[in-house]
Every structure is written in structure tokens, then in C-alpha cells.
């Protein structure tokens, strides 16, 4: 019985470890897709000046968007002026500060003229590049470590029980 319990604890700690690692991967992927969106928006605003609702819809249609639900949330936040902040349940993988930064950018999106808007998007693109590097390096350093640590915690608990 004790052995079965130990095996379950180790499996559980492995699942938790993988979940935590997945959080890093999701965050990394999301930022890459956000950068893709910003680049897409820049081109569309520069050449066709389509409205934001249309821009989002076109992006969803043309690109293989993995974070559709998350981008829908950003679109709703942007279009509904009454919505005060992004839903943290949908963007759970981001830290509060990261969500806040995205909110600040999108709150001002669409409120400027063409050249100003493009300048703003270019600036944000650079910011996202830096963020992606940061998130990637955090992921690389931590993913193996967290998984091992999680397993180690499971093993320690098992030893204590045994």
C-alpha cells in the first residue's frame, strides 16, 4: 500500500513539474505570437489602414493563431471601453506586471494617427523582442531544474512516508 502511495506521489510530482514547465513554454509561445500580431498590425495599418476589429479578425483568419482565446480577450478589452482590465483567468500564465504592461499598450492602441501608431508598434515590437529573450532564457534555465526539483520533492516525501 505504501509503495503504491509512493508511486502515486512521484507520478503526481512529475505531473506538477511538467505543468510548471508548460507554464514557461506557454508564456514564451504567447509572447512570440504577440510579436507576430504586432508586426502584422504594423503592416496592415501602414498599407491598408483597416479598423481594429477587422484587423483582429483578419489576423485570426490568416494566421494559425494558437492563442485565439487570449487574443479574443485582448480584442474585447480594446473594443469595450468599459472593460477595465484583462481577464487573469484567461491570461493565467502571465505575471500581474506582464498583464499590466499589455493592458497599457493596448489601452493606447488605435488612439493615434498612422505614423504615430506605426512608431508605437515598432517600439513595442522591440520591447517584445527583449521580453522574448528574457522569457526564453528563464525557460531554458528553469525548465529542467523545476522538473527535477518537483520530482525530488516527490521522492523526499516518499522517503519520509516510507
Amino acid at each position: 500500500m505504501v509503495y503504491v502511495g509512493c508511486v502515486l506521489i512521484i507520478v503526481l510530482s512529475s505531473v506538477v513539474g511538467r505543468g510548471l514547465v508548460k507554464l514557461f513554454i506557454t508564456r514564451d509561445k504567447f509572447y512570440k505570437e504577440l510579436k507576430l500580431f504586432v508586426g502584422y498590425a504594423k503592416t496592415e495599418i501602414e498599407f491598408s489602414q483597416i479598423k481594429l476589429t477587422e484587423l483582429f479578425d483578419k489576423f485570426f483568419e490568416e494566421k494559425q493563431v494558437e492563442f485565439l482565446k487570449e487574443f479574443q480577450e485582448i480584442k474585447n478589452y480594446l473594443m469595450q471601453n468599459e472593460k477595465k482590465c484583462l481577464d487573469n483567468k484567461i491570461l493565467y500564465f502571465l505575471k500581474r506586471e506582464e498583464r499590466r504592461n499589455i493592458e497599457v499598450f493596448f489601452r493606447g492602441f488605435g488612439t493615434k494617427g498612422v505614423s504615430e501608431e506605426i512608431g508605437q508598434l515598432e517600439k513595442y515590437q522591440e520591447e517584445l523582442k527583449r521580453k522574448i529573450n528574457e522569457v526564453e532564457s528563464i525557460r531554458r534555465t528553469n525548465e529542467g531544474l523545476i522538473y527535477k526539483l518537483s520530482l525530488a520533492v516527490g521522492v523526499v516525501v516518499c522517503i519520509l512516508i516510507a
Binding site: I45, K51, L52, L78, F109, G110, T111, E117
Partner: peptide
């Protein structure tokens, strides 16, 4: 914002 549907640049 409302008049331009959040797309002043357009």
C-alpha cells in the same frame, strides 16, 4: 474612440 471604432489612424 467611439466615433472611429477605436481606430483613429483609419
Amino acid at each position: 474612440k467611439r466615433a472611429t471604432e477605436n481606430s483613429l489612424y483609419a
